[in-house]
Write a protein that binds this DNA or RNA. Structure first.
Lengths: 338, 338
DNA sequence: GTGAAAGCGCTAACAC
DNA sequence: GTGTTAGCGCTTTCAC
């Protein structure tokens, strides 16, 4: 009961061999008498021996823990990314330690400042809006901690990054609207200062330009990622001097907010105003009309950023790598002008 | 660069005092000369000293890590519970290590078997469907690891549990349907063998009985928690000899599936067939008609189970505690017979 | 009030 | 092929 866990010492005592022999047998390394090894392994499994990670960690200077710092887990995108990360980590025998910032830059800062570098082998990060933690990330990197950014990256830091193709996704979304006959296309953008926001805005602007479509400053509104922001921004859009006939939202969440606003105003989605999102949250198939969107490869982003991090951990000087995964246009009802 | 992290030794050398003095100063314990202490603290903060958790863990036999084992994180309920857990853990300086079973009992088993008890101070668990890990949980407990179950509990194990009031929630859901004039009430139940499933079934049955409502075996269908299950089960329900006029679904996800099926069959939700769920997933306000449901206190469940676990960790023989949190009926459009 | 030394569980030279 | 020993970073007696 009293929490006595079996140690290597117990095994050695019982089998009447030395600690090192047990250690060697357990790790299947060096030459150990086959028979001895089998006896050790048998006893270990019988007594349910498990190595103490604190001890192995101390010896190796490693912990088999990787940290994840991200804004939220309560949305489809992030929870799916984590599931992807976890898939790779699990198969490679790494634990994942979760830190949630609630998209608050203060919380993010406090997490990083209190982070014990020695209790982590590596770190996966998606920064908060208005993050001012750049220099702290740099400190961590200087202390030798491998870091990979995903989705919301900090562009001033030279390390590996994994993200969807924000620019081309936005470009494709807007071209889709244009092809379907919409001519006054607005954009519900993300918070300013986020790399992802900027990329999607640029994709939006370039698609308009490339197709000689009109652009008005009042058609682009920056705010948070929430559904509520999408809803209230849409009311503003409806007040525009020149009312838009289509909305490209930076995320599905905001697109859903927009649709709710349009419904409340009895505006026919698709026919009167087209709506396209970005994510492919399953909710887009449940809402009516269903939501056209750019699908993000969330699960793969999780897998790939974890794989990349593990490479960094294994090779001391692995070259920083930037991976950009393409999105896929998924056409549904919200952009059909029937 | 070469990953040299500042240690207590560095501080001692630089300040020309002994290791123990530094250690004592840092932990604000024993008598340390006020001035010495200040010097140590100043240098520590200047050099950004962080204790090595592996080392402190080894000394104390503790790690400040708590594990969470659960089926999924990609749904509203679980991701919200985790956010609650994280809130408490963060404030108490504990890390959370995430293990996802994908609702597979094999994966769950493998996770538990490979769990190094010595790398965890405690464990929070929501079991997978068809879990057969009971005896393994018992082993962990015998080894002295504090465990708290939440939501999906294993009833054969004597330890703390935190859950919503499944029985009364179901009871209230069904009474609500009855009050609104529905008389042939069906139940899309969860997988057999899960305590939660059973409780909700019992609440359903007792509410029918108490109100002298008819009950037919064909009106209750057991299957998984997914939306797809809800959808296909609903088609079965529509084939019943005596077609039900209301559906109580074990979760909002299944209720959503049911609504989708009803919509495809052009059945008027509310008027022809009422639908009520259990969770209060935000999607219930987005779908049309909006979904009546029993709200689960997911965030609080997370907070409370984490608080309870911390109590177990601190007191060696803390009495197992069963906490049951009430749900709240939230009436929306899907149960209105307009 | 401070230092020396042992030890947490394990690994890794270094002997033999 | 196996044992001995030092040491990872820190805490904690036990001296002084």
């Amino acid at each position: 009961m009293g929490r006595h866990v079996v140690t290597i010492k117990d095994l050695a005592r019982i089998l009447n061999v030395s600690l090192s022999t047990v250690s060697r047998a357990l790790r299947d390394t060096y030459d150990v008498n086959k028979e001895t090894k089998e006896r050790v392994l048998a006893l270990a499994s019988e007594l349910n021996y498990k190595p103490n990670f604190n001890a192995t960690g101390l010896c190796h200077g490693s912990t088999h823990n990787i940290g994840i710092i991200l804004p939220f887990i309560t949305n489809y995108y992030f929870s799916t990314v984590i599931t992807g990360i976890q898939e790779i980590a699990y198969n490679s025998n790494y634990n994942i330690i979760l830190y949630i910032t609630n998209d608050s830059s203060e919380r993010e800062l406090s997490i990083i400042q209190n982070l014990s570098v020695s209790s982590l082998d590596g770190l996966l990060i998606s920064v908060s809006s208005n993050s001012d933690s750049g220099s702290h990330f740099k400190n961590l990197i200087d202390e030798g901690l491998p870091i990979v950014f995903f989705d919301r990256v900090d562009n001033n830091i030279d390390t590996s990054k994994v993200m969807q193709d924000d620019y081309n996704g936005a470009f494709e979304a807007v071209e889709h609207l244009i092809k379907n006959g919409y001519t006054k296309i607005s954009h519900l953008a993300g918070p300013k200062g986020l790399h992802l926001t900027e990329k999607r805005v640029n994709g939006y602007l370039d698609a308009l330009k490339n197709n000689n479509m009109p652009y008005r400053e009042e058609w682009i509104i920056h705010s948070g990622f929430s559904q509520d922001c999408g809803e209230s921004d849409t009311y503003k859009l409806l007040q525009c001097e020149e009312r838009p006939d289509a909305i490209f939202a930076v995320t599905d969440q905001k697109a859903i907010g927009a649709m709710l606003a349009l419904k409340k105003k009895n505006i026919h989605i698709g026919k009167e105003i087209g709506v396209i999102g970005f994510t492919d949250d399953p909710i887009g198939t449940i809402i009516s009309p269903s939501l056209t969107t750019i699908q993000e490869p969330a699960f793969n982003i999780g897998k790939i950023c974890c794989e990349l991090l593990l490479k960094h951990i294994k090779k001391k000087y692995f070259q920083p790598n930037e991976v950009i995964l393409p999105g896929t246009l998924i056409v549904r009802e919200s952009t059909v002008r029937n």
